[in-house]
Design a protein around this nucleic acid. Sequence first.
DNA 1: GGGTTACCTGATCTCGTAAA
DNA 2: TTTACGAGATCAGGTAACCC
Length: 571
Amino acid sequence: MEQCHLDIYGTLELEQTNLISSTLYNLKPFGSTGSDVESLSSYILRLANAHCVSTPKLTNNIMLPSFEEKYQLFKLSTIINGFNNLTVHSVHVLEKLTCRDDLQKLTLINFRNVLSGTFLLKRHREWCPLCMQNMKIPYDKLIWNITAYEVCPSHLIKLESNCPNCGKGQTVIPANGKNGYCQHCNCWLGRNEHDTSLSDIDDESIYKSTEIESILEYFFNKDPIDKKHLINSLRKIDRYLSEHVNVKGFFEGEVGLARNAFNRYCKGKGSPTIEHLVALSSRLNVSLINMLIEYGVKPSLETDQLLPKNRKYNEEYDYERVKQYLITALNSNRYVTIYEITEEFGMNPTTLDTNFPSLMNEIRIQNQRLQKRIRSARAYNHKKDYAKVKKYLEALLHSNEFIPISNIHKELGMNSRTLANKFPDLLNKIRMKNKRLRENASVKRDPGEIRYRPAIDKKYVGRTLQNYLNLIEDKPIYLIRISQEIGISHESIKRHFPEIVALIHKKNREVLDIKKNKRKQELRQTIEEMIENGVYPSLNKLHDRLGYSVSLEFAEVRKNILKEFGIKRFI
DNA sequence: GGGTTACCTGATCTCGTAAA
DNA sequence: TTTACGAGATCAGGTAACCC
């Protein structure tokens, strides 16, 4: 052996050092950045390999005794790379057993304040065969465990989940086996070249993976993320969306998230799934990092993503602008019509009166003072203007558009009474035409179209509601669904048919009660059968037998039944 | 210009279900 | 068992069109 190949280390003063021997080998985790760091499950498998024991032996015999609470560690191994209590305990125990202090970075604990655990982690192993091939010693990357990470952005291929030799899937922590090899046939899982065509990968998947890599890199070796930054970012996004799009439609159509859920996140209740966050990031051109650190969050939508927004509500800053506008109008001593103000802000006169009663009143008084001069300037001259107005009205009459009378005198700048006095026949004909159009109108309107309300066919609606009432037998039929099918809002239905609506609600409640009682009976019968067969009726086993989760209410029923049988605690 | 009617939007709550 | 989510119900506040 040539001496020049050996490393020379400094002298160790044993008397000055508190040497502590670790229970498990002090293995160093692989990966030096957030995107290529090893997963905790991979580390556990390597530890088991190093000690020549199976992973269940390592987890159950060596790790479990150190746990304060009892976990079925092996059973819950699919979530060990995330951030729940099991992960925190596992990291704590393993750091103690290996005398290391850097195992937390093998998990997603840093993200526990800002991400939902739902749909966060895959339930099986996935890997990039090309990355695997390039590793000197194979290991599973933490990032491969994240559900939304579907493709490897470096190699532009989809992650693989089945062994190329036997075709079987791989569990997150196999009982036996080695990282990089199939746990069933021991075949190597890496590969030199990929045969997957690029067309299999969409831009959205690449975007998702790239964004996930970026946040894992950024928050690597940092403290857990503070949730307040994400909340503030989401609020900024909420304000932007409220101004530009139909928010509900945007969330349901573009993000796949309920508006209610997003409201909760803005208030700090709950956390979004990583899929939803990435979708928001993608649609609004805000990077995930910026969203999480609340830096430079300037959402922007592509023009073709802008959805029609019919109205604006509760826009406080608009009210402030309206107030300033009214004060300026008042001080200018200029005749500012109420119509002009409503046009400027798209607000209804009633709304203006409600919010600015005194200012509106002062403007009206000022307008009355200036009215004489305005009247003379606007006065309709029968000799001069008759032909022009008549031509305009005849054109309206022959068009197929619905033009409200109120819009006509505004358009012509004429007093409504003057118009009615000078052109009674034409106006009556236009009214008749409008009535005909209204009766033939479909209920659904395009955004921006002039609105008018169709008359409700009370006989038809009453009969239809009665039919729905008769149809309620074993399933409730909610008013929302009925209103959608009839095409009339549930508010109107309630207003016109309060008695039938009350009957529908009552019958729905009865149906739900019957369903509940049926389930209670089924629950009791199942529990009795299980006890007779010597099987403890745990919630999980009941779920397996019944085929549905036992809700809180039914869990209480179960407890009472167990009391009757004198079973007080878990076996 | 005020009142009425029909409808829309947003917020909030309850409850059931499914995932972890 | 806990947590997240969605459907449905309800209420408050707002707008447009129409009538008087």
